[in-house]
Nucleic acid binder design. Structure first.
Length: 219
DNA sequence: AATCGGGTAGTAAAGGGGTT
DNA sequence: AACCCCTTTACTACCCGATT
C-alpha cells in the first residue's frame, strides 16, 4: 500500500458524509488532493466553465470533477493529464501549493520590533523588520534611524554581507578604507568583516534599510 | 415550478497484493 | 498461475439549494 493510497483512504474516512459542509470550508489538511482540487477549481472558474462544462471538456463525469475539486478522490495520472490538457496548463501547475509550508515574516509599516545592538549606546535606533529562525536564519532586515543625538560609529564588524539602502537624510558611510556619501535612494553593499558605519551625519532625520546576509557557518 | 450548478450515495470495473 | 479479497477509480442516478 502506498503513502498516497493511505492518505486517500484517510481522506475518505475523515470526510464520510460531507453534505453538511459548506463550499470552500474544509476540515481536511492541505494535502496533495486538496492542492489539486483548489487549482482545478480556480483554473476552471477563470475560464468561466461550470463543473459540467469542464467535465464534458475533459471527458470525465461531473461527479468525478466534483470529487476532484473537493479532494474526495486521488485521481489517476491519466485523469490529471486530461485535466491539464482541458485546462491548457502544465500538469505541474495542478500541484501548486502542495509543498510544505515555508516560513515568512510579515511586518506592517512602522511595526518593526525595536532591538538593542552595538550602536544603540551611541544613539542608533534599530527596528527588526524580518528574520527567519532555524536553518533559514541567514538574513536580517533592519530599519535604522539616526537623530541629532546619535553619534558616528564606523567600527561595526560582522560576518557576511550587508546591503544598505538610504531612505531619508544624508550621511557619510565608511567601509574599510573607503567613505561613501549616501543620500536618499543611494545604496551600498559591503563585506561585513570590514570595519564600517557612519562617519558623518549631515542631514537629519537619517533612515536607512540594512539587510545583512549571514554565511551558513555563522548561524 | 422549472432550471441549473454542484454535491452525494451506490455500484461496477479494474488492479494490486497475499495465499495456495 | 489461479484465486480471493480489498482498494481505488469513475460512472449513473439522484438530491439539494439558489435562481428565475
Amino acid at each position: 500500500m502506498t503513502d498516497l493510497a493511505d492518505s486517500s483512504r484517510l481522506l475518505r474516512n475523515r470526510t464520510g458524509s460531507t453534505r453538511q459542509r459548506h463550499r470552500g470550508e474544509s476540515d481536511v489538511p492541505f494535502s496533495l488532493e486538496g492542492a489539486i482540487g483548489v487549482n482545478v477549481r480556480l483554473l476552471r472558474q477563470q475560464q468561466g466553465l461550470s463543473v459540467a462544462d469542464m467535465a464534458a471538456k475533459v471527458g470525465i463525469s461531473k461527479a468525478m470533477m466534483s470529487k476532484i475539486e473537493n479532494a474526495q478522490t486521488s485521481c489517476s495520472l491519466a485523469t490529471l493529464a486530461l485535466l491539464s490538457q482541458g485546462l491548457d496548463v502544465p500538469v505541474g501547475s495542478l500541484f501548486r501549493g502542495s509543498d510544505a509550508e515555508r516560513p515568512a515574516a510579515f511586518v506592517r509599516a512602522g511595526q518593526g520590533t525595536p532591538i538593542v545592538r552595538n550602536g544603540t549606546q551611541v544613539g542608533h535606533g534599530y527596528h527588526l523588520l524580518g528574520s527567519l529562525r532555524g536553518e533559514h536564519r541567514r538574513l536580517e532586515c533592519l530599519m535604522v534611524e539616526l537623530t541629532e543625538d546619535s553619534e558616528v560609529h564606523p567600527l561595526f564588524q560582522h560576518p557576511g554581507t550587508e546591503f544598505i539602502y538610504m531612505l531619508e537624510g544624508v550621511m557619510e558611510y565608511g567601509h574599510s578604507r573607503s567613505v561613501f556619501r549616501l543620500e536618499r535612494g543611494d545604496s551600498v553593499t559591503l563585506d561585513g568583516e570590514g570595519a564600517h558605519g557612519p562617519t558623518a551625519l549631515i542631514e537629519f532625520p537619517i533612515r536607512f534599510l540594512s539587510v545583512i546576509a549571514f554565511p551558513d557557518t555563522s548561524v
